[in-house]
Computed example of a mutant assay.
Amino acid sequence: MNRRLIVLCGRSFSGKSRTAAWLADALPGVVVSLDEINAERGLWGGDGIPLEEWAHTNEIARHRVGDALDSGHTVIVDDTSSPRFLRDGWRELATSSRSSLALVYVDTPIPVIMERLAANRATPTRGDLTDEVLADHLGSFEPPAADEDAIRVQPNTPRATVLEKINRRLVRDIGPDD
């Protein structure tokens, strides 16, 4: 069975959730969203969430991803995936579940993020972030390093190109015993 895990990485308002949704339709796959898990738990990241609560949310997500992979689903993880140790955790899960992995870095320039945030504040389509939480997030975000071999997606990257790169990565990642 070819188990496939796609981990999204990017700043708030970069377009990760939108990317996750169309990937789920195109591949097809299931989305595990850490924001949705937080909402189920009565937490809202826009006001800041204590680290121990994020750790618990991440553990819930890991169980859901593992169960979905075990059921043969392609899984898309919708999260900022910063800092690196979180991405390394997804790599470990992919290895232990014998899944192929693609890390997709949704690399949206900060001015575009700020435009999206302003538009959302004028006409809300999703939850807001306090300026303090956003500043902390933007300042502490760790983009993938070169050795992480991330697929970089920018706002103008055609979807067909993104799918092609993901599929090539997932095929390349399949070992001889898979």
Results as ranks from 00 to 15, higher is better:
N2I: 15
N2P: 15
R4I: 05
I6K: 04
I6H: 02
V7W: 02
C9V: 14
G10D: 04
R11A: 11
S12F: 08
G15Q: 13
G15H: 08
G15Y: 08
G15S: 13
K16N: 08
T19H: 02
W22S: 04
A24H: 02
A24W: 04
D25F: 00
P28K: 01
P28L: 07
P28C: 03
G29D: 03
V30T: 08
V30E: 02
V30Q: 03
V31P: 05
V31R: 01
V32H: 01
D35K: 08
E36H: 13
E36V: 14
N38G: 03
E40P: 00
R41G: 00
G42W: 10
G45T: 10
P50C: 08
L51R: 12
L51A: 14
E52I: 09
E53I: 13
W54R: 15
A55C: 06
E59M: 11
I60R: 01
H63Y: 10
R64L: 14
D67P: 11
A68G: 12
D70G: 14
S71F: 05
G72S: 06
T74M: 09
V75A: 01
D78V: 13
D79Q: 09
T80Q: 07
S81M: 07
R84Q: 12
R84I: 14
R87V: 11
D88Y: 05
D88S: 08
E92T: 15
S96V: 15
R98C: 10
R98H: 13
S100M: 10
A102T: 11
T108H: 07
P111Y: 03
I113D: 04
I113P: 06
M114C: 06
E115F: 00
N120V: 12
R121G: 11
R121H: 08
P124T: 03
T125M: 07
R126K: 15
L129T: 07
L129W: 00
T130C: 13
T130W: 04
D131F: 01
D131P: 01
E132N: 11
D136N: 09
H137P: 03
S140K: 15
P144R: 05
I151M: 01
R152N: 00
V153P: 09
Q154P: 05
R159F: 05
R159N: 11
A160C: 14
A160P: 10
V162Y: 03
K165R: 15
I166N: 07
R168F: 01
R169Q: 12
L170I: 13
L170Q: 05
L170C: 12
R172Y: 02
D173R: 13
P176N: 02
D177V: 14
D178W: 12
